[in-house]
Design a protein around this nucleic acid. Structure first.
Lengths: 184, 184
DNA sequence: GTCTATAAATAGATAGAC
DNA sequence: GTCTATCTATTTATAGAC
């Protein structure tokens, strides 16, 4: 019987799986413990025998989300990143609400949960940024790539709590913009 | 006297400037109307004669933040994007709490406001992602660039509310990963 | 370990005086 | 237009029965 998963472990895993999906799709603040527990088919009172706080749950849920998401990577010996990127950067990955998407991208989002007025303003701001880029980068595709690398690089750099890694990322992205716009 | 800014306009601008700074640095949910009004040296009651809701303020504050941030771009006739990227992707821009940073990157962040446990988990997940990338991209710098472009591209694509633009961005980023890893 | 009930705090929004 | 005071809803977290 040693291989059996205990009832407690089952419950915790159910809570984590539910939380991973809800948090990645809707963000930390939009999701209450109630909603997580309801999706896990438990009640609120049971929560604190598994986690010490909502933040504790969040940290563990990010882990869970990553595990589940990366299970979907081709399980050959090595992942071909350039190939994986084709799926990763697809409308299917962006829009799918049924499977567990990549938390690294989905959790970097204070905007997505917001209403249309807010998203509309964000979109307009992004377009202005692209227009700015196109003043010196004539190829529109290169302008979009550069903008995504800049915004993404800075956003991730801010989310990391290890400064050497964060600095290294910034430097790499600087060089990346140069590579992408080399022929200008 | 026609050129004079009215008292009401001054108040609204003060609220917007305060909100822009607070929201970009700490996120929508962490900032209360109270805090915004306090920074603007007004009280809560005055808020609703300028804005219909907190969301309304948020949308307008993003605009304000973009205006202020882009004022700092070199005001020659045209901006050299590759050059601007060097500042944009600098620790100074990442860490500065005194000036208005770019809202496009700073608002794409459900993580930054969170505690160290959460940021630590996010960092570990990012490192795992890089390790995955390095299975097929031997140059570490290229691995970092590709990851930032993928995560950033997807995150922004999700934040945009115009599907053709969002799709175009995804496609551009797919091509960008190929360009960045061309010599592999 | 899970449940129901409840405490305690926070924050968005409104009312009415000046 | 700005103030103080208040209503109301939400939500994290805890207490105690089973």
């Amino acid at each position: 019987m040693a291989w059996q998963v205990t009832h407690k472990e089952q419950s915790k895993d159910k809570i984590l799986t539910s939380a991973a999906m809800l948090f990645t799709h809707h963000g930390f603040d939009k999701i209450s413990i109630d909603q997580v527990m309801e999706k896990a088919e438990l009640t609120r009172g049971a929560f604190y025998s598994h986690f010490s706080s909502k933040s504790d749950l969040y940290a563990q849920a990010i882990n869970k989300a990553a595990q589940v998401a990366y299970q979907r990577t081709p399980d050959n010996e090595t992942v071909q990143m350039a190939e994986y990127a084709q799926f990763y950067l697809s409308p299917a990955h962006r829009d799918d609400n049924l499977q567990q998407p990549c938390p690294l991208a989905f959790l970097v989002s204070d905007i997505n949960q917001k209403n249309e007025q807010v998203k509309s303003t964000y979109t307009k701001t992004f377009k202005r940024f692209i227009k700015l880029a196109e003043q010196s980068i004539t190829d529109r595709q290169q302008a979009l790539q550069s903008a995504a690398l800049m915004i993404g690089g800075l956003a991730i750099a801010r989310a990391l709590n290890e400064e050497p890694l964060s600095d290294e990322l910034l430097k790499s992205c600087q060089a990346g913009v140069l590579t992408l716009t080399e022929n200008e």
